[in-house]
Design a protein around this nucleic acid. Structure first.
Lengths: 114, 114
DNA sequence: CGTATATTCACCCATATGGATGAATATAAA
DNA sequence: TTTATATTCATCCATATGGGTGAATATACG
């Protein structure tokens, strides 16, 4: 996947998970396993349609998949994409550590006796 | 911190990092260390004001702090809050593993010989 | 003091977002 | 075939968001 697409995907994942209702949906799905849209909506004081939209956002971010069996849509959580967040963070931290190492090197040179 | 506040903070962190410009700002700050607003804005084809606003979003999410020295504002990255994302994900994964364990237990009982 | 610099504040604008409702579609069931 | 159920589609609405511009504020400098 090219850099731009990958950045876009990360944005989608982060944005999708930034909504409390959607995080809650993911948790419920992980707890219960694949669930129907109506069943999921039952947990919330919110219209079925709104939940349906939230599910579509999660789906667009590849955080859930859908298996349609007749008129029932089974929604299933996918955790792998969240690793992309993890990778981004790990990268950020490694850059951080790198800079601190550089600073240390500089300080050591500055104050060394040779 | 109570559960509701903590949820809100996580939402803020995820939303703040969901924007590519803000992720880029964080990366730059981690690479360069504390930087001035104008200096940061110089990296982007975007008005100083817009960058200033992005910084305020990061600040509200506690992802950067600000040290004002005279008319200069030094912005510094803070990586610790990102751990909250990590914790959320770890929790989600543990719930996932728990369910799979339960499933396995059920299957073992179902097909055991006793 | 007057001027230049660094940054935010106050608006404006177009678009996105999260919610709602009612209609449409597709499938199951009687 | 008629009816009920599961879900999405099409709209609508209020608010948030990301961008811009010009004015205001605060500080540094000549």
């Amino acid at each position: 996947m090219d850099e731009y697409k990958s950045e876009q995907k990360l944005s989608a994942i982060l944005k999708a998970t930034s909504d409390p209702t959607r995080r809650s949906l993911l948790t419920t799905l992980v707890q219960q396993g694949p669930s129907r849209v109506t069943e999921l909506a039952g947990h919330y004081d919110m219209s079925l349609n709104s939940i349906s939209k939230h599910i579509k956002v999660l789906e667009a971010a590849t955080l859930v998949t859908r298996k349609t069996i007749g008129r029932v849509h089974l929604i299933e959580a996918q955790l792998e994409p969240i690793n992309e967040i993890d990778n981004w963070f790990k990268n950020l931290r490694s850059i951080w550590d790198l800079r601190l190492d550089d600073l240390e090197t500089i300080l050591n040179k500055e104050f060394s006796d040779d």
